[in-house]
């Protein structure tokens, strides 16, 4: 384990992989923000101040104030936690659901596998943003419903991956050996199948955090995610959009926050992909 970490570190050294290193720095800072933001923000993210509304960025208010005079810097910082939490829940739910269905298909085989995979294909045939819009419109607009809606559109990717993994583990010699010495049932499943199939799934899930944030903010942008006054980034961009041409800072700073967060995760993802692929490992 320590060796692995050391190898990852060597690979991510700033001199060798500057973009990957930048990604690590960005994500660590964002994670730190998510943890400490509520305790260190200079102003309450909800405090309305109509006299001080739409003030441009200054030393006291680095990101300016919005249409209700709320401090945008504080709102963006507090929004970090909301976005990360949403992403983790979405990925967790999709991973769980996808792994269960994919594993079931791979282990059962035959018609069960056929039915499950055709169902998975049908889910994948919807453009996911539009499908998530339909699901959250049916469930009603709120952040938890948006998270559920995105998970509904997302699990098929993990189901496919999990199925492929289990199918390849199934044919391994060590599984045959375990069966031969009498390992079966749950022990075979958890210790042999799941353990060996899980790591690519977890890598993929980590890479997907950025996209989950992107999709959540997109749903909030069309009004189907977080509701006011929640300081969710997508919602803040949507509410500030009408002020763009005269008070650009209102939608642009929350937008930048989304961009930098997603970029951080994608930079790490790109580096991990290179690391895992022996052809690009150099």
């Amino acid at each position: 384990m320590r060796e692995d970490l050391r190898a990852v570190w060597r690979f991510l050294r700033p001199s060798r992989n500057p973009l990957g290193f930048l990604g690590v720095v960005l994500v660590l800072s964002i994670a730190l923000c998510a943890v400490v933001a509520p305790y260190v923000v200079p102003y309450s993210p909800y405090k309305v101040d109509l006299i001080g509304r739409l003030r441009p960025p200054s030393w006291a208010r680095p990101f300016g104030t919005d249409e209700l005079g709320r401090d945008i810097f504080s709102r963006v910082l507090v929004g970090t936690r909301i976005s990360l939490q949403a992403a983790v829940v979405i990925i967790g739910l999709s991973l769980l659901c996808g792994t269960v269905i994919g594993t079931l298909g791979a282990l059962a085989g035959g018609w069960v596998d056929d039915v499950l995979m055709r169902l998975t294909d049908s889910f994948l045939a919807f453009p996911y943003l539009i499908f998530a819009m339909l699901v959250s419109a049916v469930l009603g607009p709120s952040l938890p419903n948006a998270m559920l809606a995105i998970s509904v559109t997302w699990w098929p990717w993990y189901a496919r991956l999990a199925r492929g993994q289990i199918l390849s583990v199934k044919t391994q010699l060590y599984v045959e050996a375990a069966r031969a010495v009498g390992v079966g049932g749950f022990r075979l499943f958890f210790n042999y199948f799941l353990r060996n199939a899980l790591s690519p799934l977890i890598v993929q899930a980590t890479l997907d955090v950025g996209y989950a944030i992107l999709l959540t903010s997109s749903l909030s942008f069309v009004g189907l995610g977080a509701q006011p006054p929640t300081p969710e980034w997508g919602r803040m961009v949507a509410d500030g959009r009408q002020y763009l041409l005269s008070y650009w800072w209102v939608p642009i700073f929350p937008g930048l926050a989304i961009f930098i967060t997603v970029l951080g995760f994608n930079l790490i993802g790109d580096a991990i992909r290179d690391f895992v692929d022996p052809r690009t490992r150099r």
Binding site: S218, F221, R241, N266
Partner: peptide, 14 residues
């Protein structure tokens, strides 16, 4: 990487 990380609604606004 910037392209896949930039939400279309923000790029459009910019």
């Amino acid at each position: 990487l910037a392209g896949v990380s930039l939400p279309v609604f923000i790029f459009g606004l910019v």
